[in-house]
């Protein structure tokens, strides 16, 4: 049992990170913390790809004299792309949070929902809310 765990420790790490990330996304009301959780969740998948690419005893995949075993480069390339996507998502998410803070004066989810349902709040973005509405 323990041996099984040790042999697959990379998978366990991945599962732990994924669950931790998802938990933060679901449990936290703070919009920034949600994004942090989302980042952790995405990172776990990077591990899922990169870890199996490692081949014991292999070297960097550059053809040269004297080396016969190479690591698989493809997962790294894929994950490079995925990281870029992740960064873009995070940047966009943060930008949205900034705009939400400008519009609602809060980044707490329940607070924001309350403000939209409060009767005195006008539904359109007001002054200082960043989005100056063109009539």
């Amino acid at each position: 049992m323990l041996a099984h765990f040790v042999d697959h420790f990379d998978y366990w790490a991945m599962i732990f990170l994924a669950m931790a990330g998802l938990f933060i996304v679901i449990a936290r009301g703070n919009l920034i913390k949600k994004l942090v959780g989302l980042g952790i969740f995405q990172t776990s998948v990077y591990l899922l790809y990169v870890a199996p690419g490692k081949i014991v005893g292999g070297t960097a995949p550059i053809v040269a004299e004297g080396f016969r075993v190479y690591s698989n480069p493809l997962p790294h390339v894929l994950i490079l792309t995925a990281i870029v996507v992740g960064v873009a998502t995070l940047a966009l998410g943060l930008a949205l949070v900034v705009r939400i803070r400008e519009a609602y004066d809060s980044i707490e989810e329940d607070e924001i929902l309350r403000r939209d349902h409060a009767p005195e709040v006008t539904p359109s973005r007001g002054e200082g809310a960043g989005g100056k509405v063109v009539p």
């Binding site: 996304v25 949600k34 949205l96 973005r125």
Partner: peptide, 26 residues
């Protein structure tokens, strides 16, 4: 979108959409 709720809607979509996309990558 003109309404400020558009921002929240986009954020929620971003969270859900990214989770979905990550599931797809897995």
């Amino acid at each position: 979108g003109r309404d400020r709720r558009a921002l929240v809607a986009a954020y929620q979509y971003l969270i859900m959409g990214t989770i979905g996309a990550t599931f797809i990558v897995v």
